[in-house]
Design a protein around this nucleic acid. Structure first.
Length: 812
RNA sequence: GGGGAUAUGGCGGAAUUGGUAGACGCGCUAGCUUCAGGAGCUAGUUCUCGUAAGAGAGUGAGAGUUCGAGUCUCUCUAUCCCCACCA
């Protein structure tokens, strides 16, 4: 043993062993455990210390589970397709595949340097044709079951990047990359029918599949994440109501959650994109003015249209009137861009007395205002604002005097009888647009034949490989369309000339199923064998950033449910237990970013303090899911701790007589660390180990058995030093093949207990007494205590409350 | 506007879930060791008053319940995250 703890030598030594022989993996008797962290995007900048938290936490937990006797699957791979590599290619001419492989190389080196126990034989990369072959298979699977379809749609378009953008690439109405304002453009695109799975459905074999909404109830996820998914899905119950256009057979359907307010409807508003406008055409007497409004709207950016602060604008449709379904009264119709074409029916009823937006609009255009709901508490309506709460109906024909909820029920029944509407559930969420006019993604396996139309590429012809000779410069068309080698194809049906789909898939498609591939990463017959899936899936523990609360996690759940529906999987939720790591901020309290210059590279920290110290510090910083600021100066704490653990070796001897107090503390620590690791309270697990070490250091010599246990408790958190100490103790096998220490509950109980004595709620002293003492003994001792007697000042004790083992409260 | 979360020393944070607030670590102070430095050792470190013993105050603010509140209830305030003209 060296006198000095030298992490760099020890860590390199064990990493080399683990590299050569593969990390020791105990195949436990307790069954499988799948621990996964969200696979990273291998960015060219490499890892920063913020990323290390996620990997370390998952690794620590996976090691702990393995110690406990589970066969743990904890794989790693790369979410390798994506924009940055393509943008880099545009700028430098270096092909994305080259840059990506370099970045992966660097990530792999960095991850290995923090001592993660991954099974590297299972490494996958989404940009590998052997992987995206199965991403394309997934597309075909969805297509064959009617869950992938093509349609014209309005999409986000960045005029400077000349491409569509995913919703998540639009921040505050601006392109994330160029900062340009995004506009809406109509393009023909591929969609996945995720909305088919919002509610419960039946599988092919007749089993019920919980939908994306109800499935949330049974999984162990952060409540905030579940709530965010519910909000994103945005289910709302209401009614669809038909307004006939006077003198025609045409109708306008509106969606409302407040059918009870319909007698207060004094006009109807259409979204500028509403198809009825084209149909009405010349019936609109001021068509010129309307056309101009529509043209102006189209020119507006998304941000301009959705800016809440801006004034509402609209145009009255001259010559068009609708009939109120309940009263038959003729109502004016407007077109206004505050009505969204993408939600509900693209048309709303205007009830200025009971909706703030309608109120503002009606005031501006001087429209009639008819209050029909009164507050139930007898208060009167306030002049100059709308009353948007539920209440009691007034002025509402036969429905007058009903309360809102009852009125909604009776009114929708009436509508259904009259054929003027129906109950309707609306969702905010829409189908998933997966087309991207990008190069660096998985090509959509479709060809277009003049004769046969849309033809899926046969499975046997997969993968449809990305061409290598492509001009990346953006022109608004997918770069793939410009590759002759790629573009021209033969129709799989008739053999005639065809062209390939030149769009690629959203990278979220690749990441929606990767956790399945890890079960069987080298299978070239199917995406994973049934046996492999049954052996490892679903994921028992999933760890990743909260930024994936909605998109990735929702998409992955959709894939799982779709595959289950058609018999490919035996489970309907992919991730049973989910946790998010908190963001690690720079030392200045800002988010780490190159531009702020506050990025800390783990390489430097490892060089200065060692990987085990880095790991320990990251786990010790605070609760896993809290946001916390990095402090390089504070890393010395864990480093000093390991230095002292190292030096403790000198005190080890066999046959040490162990005090009862220390034995108790050891068992308490085993219990504490075990429970804390299980519940992911890594910060307090580390602190428990520090406290135990402090006690060991006070001893003349430390029992070898005690030190062995300590080493095991440390091993999930600081694997290198634990492995080294284990071997120094004379063990020949890896520490990671050993079993987790057990505690004896009886031995966790202290010999003596401290009872705090309060008088009238204030702490006035404490007594130390054998743990098994009775209440009467405690009381007797307390009243005999000089300090307590002084504090009581001779007053009579009227009431005594004794909480066993904790407190004695005296009231005078 | 809607939803979610958070608030404890100079700093990161702990608190057996209603029972001694500030564990553990950083930093700081004093001393020791050392040629020196230090990531070594010892003691101390919430604030106020006090040489001390001790007393009082104290967990974003204010009320309440209780023998007892960081923890429960109510009313605020601030910060962060997500969604947002969703009808």
């Amino acid at each position: 043993m060296n006198a000095q703890y030298d992490p760099n030598t020890i860590e390199k030594k064990w990493q080399t062993v683990w590299e050569k022989e593969g990390h020791p993996r105990r195949q436990g008797e307790k069954g499988k455990y799948y621990a996964l962290n969200m696979f990273p995007y291998p960015s060219g900048d490499g890892l920063h210390v913020g990323h290390v938290e996620n990997f370390t936490a998952t690794d620590t937990y996976a090691r702990f589970k393995r110690f406990q006797g589970y066969s743990v699957l904890d794989p790693i791979g790369w979410d390798a397709f994506g924009l940055p590599a393509e943008n880099f290619a545009i700028k430098t001419g270096i092909p994305p595949v080259k840059k990506t492989l370099e970045s992966i190389e660097n990530f792999r080196r960095q991850l290995k340097s923090i001592g993660l126990s991954y099974d590297w034989d299972r490494e996958i990369s989404t940009s590998d044709p052997e992987y995206y072959r199965w991403t394309q298979w997934m597309f075909l699977f969805l297509y064959q079951h009617g869950l992938a379809y093509k349609k014209k749609a309005l999409v986000n378009w960045c005029p400077s990047c000349q491409t569509v953008l995913a919703n998540e690439q639009v921040v505050d109405g601006k392109c994330e990359r160029s900062g340009d304002l995004v506009i809406q453009k109509e393009l023909e695109q591929w969609f996945f029918k995720i909305t088919d799975f919002l509610e419960d459905t039946l599988s092919e074999s007749g089993e019920k599949i919980p939908g994306l909404l109800s499935g949330l109830e049974k999984i162990d996820w952060p409540e905030s994440t579940k709530q965010a998914q519910r909000n994103w899905i945005g289910r709302s119950e209401g009614a669809e109501v038909v307004f006939y256009i006077a003198e025609t057979e045409e109708e306008i359907r509106v969606f409302t959650t407040r059918l009870d307010t319909i007698y207060g409807c004094t006009y109807v508003v259409l979204a500028p994109e509403h198809p009825i406008l084209k149909k009405l055409g010349s019936q609109i007497e001021n068509n010129g003015e309307v056309e101009k409004y529509l043209a102006d709207t189209q020119k507006k950016t998304d941000l301009e249209r959705t800016d809440l602060a801006k004034e509402k604008t609209g145009v009255f449709l001259d010559g068009v009137e609708v009939a109120h379904p309940f009263t038959g009264k003729r109502l004016p119709v407007f077109v206004a861009d505050y009505v969204l074409s993408t939600y509900g029916t693209g048309a709303v009823m205007g009830v200025p007395a009971h909706d703030e937006r309608d109120f503002v609009f009606a005031k501006k255009y001087d429209l009639e205002l008819t209050p029909v709901i009164l507050p139930t508490d007898g208060k009167s309506l306030v002049e100059g604002e709308s009353y948007t709460e539920d209440g009691v109906l007034t002025n509402s024909g036969e429905f007058t005097e009903l309360v809102s909820s009852e009125a909604r029920e009776k009114m929708s029944r009436w509508l259904e009888q009259e054929g003027l509407g129906k109950r309707k559930v609306n969702y905010r969420m829409r189908d998933w647009l997966i087309s991207r006019q990008r190069y660096w993604g998985a090509p959509i396996p479709i060809v277009y034949c003049e004769k046969d139309g849309i033809v899926p590429v046969p499975e046997k012809d997969l993968p449809v490989k990305l061409p290598t000779d492509v001009d990346f410069r953006p022109t608004g068309e997918s770069p793939l369309a410009r590759s002759k080698e790629f573009h021209d194809a033969k129709c799989p049906i008739c053999g005639g000339p065809a062209r390939r789909e030149s769009d690629t898939m959203d990278t979220f498609v690749c990441s929606s199923w990767y956790y399945l591939r890890f079960a069987d990463p080298h299978n070239d017959q199917e995406f994973a064998s049934r046996e492999a899936l049954e052996k490892y899936l679903p994921v028992d523990f999933y760890m990743g950033g909260a930024e994936h609360t909605v998109l990735h996690l929702l998409y992955a759940r959709f894939f799982t449910k779709a595959l289950w529906k058609y018999g490919y999987l035996g489970f309907d939720e992919p991730f049973l237990r989910l946790r998010h790591q908190g963001i690690i901020l720079g030392e200045d309290g800002n988010k780490m970013s190159k531009s702020k210059g506050n990025v800390v590279n783990p390489d430097q920290i490892i060089e200065e303090f060692g990987a085990d110290s880095l790991r320990l510090y990251e786990m010790f910083m605070g609760p896993l899911d809290d946001m916390k600021a990095w402090s390089t100066a504070a890393v010395v704490g864990p480093r000093r701790f390991l230095d002292r653990v190292w030096r403790l070796q000198k005190k080890i001897s066999e046959g040490v007589e162990v005090s009862r107090t220390l034995e108790t503390q050891l068992h308490q620590t085993i219990k504490k660390v075990t429970e804390d690791l299980e519940t992911l309270h890594f910060n307090t697990a580390v602190s428990a180990l520090m406290i135990l070490l402090n006690s060991f250091e006070k001893e003349e010599s430390v029992s070898k058995e005690h030190f062995k246990t300590f080493t095991l408790l440390l091993a999930p958190l600081a694997p290198h030093i634990a492995e080294e100490l284990w071997h120094e103790l004379g063990n020949k096998e890896s520490i990671f093949l050993a079993s987790w220490p057990a505690w004896d509950e009886k031995k966790t109980i202290d010999e003596m207990m401290t009872i705090v004595v309060q008088i009238n709620g204030r702490v006035r002293g404490s007594i130390v007494i054998p743990t098994e003492s009775e209440e009467s003994q405690v009381k007797e001792l307390a009243l005999a205590d000089a300090k307590i007697r002084t504090a009581l000042g001779g007053k009579e004790v009227k009431k005594t409350i004794y909480v066993s083992g904790k407190i004695l409260s005296l009231v005078t």
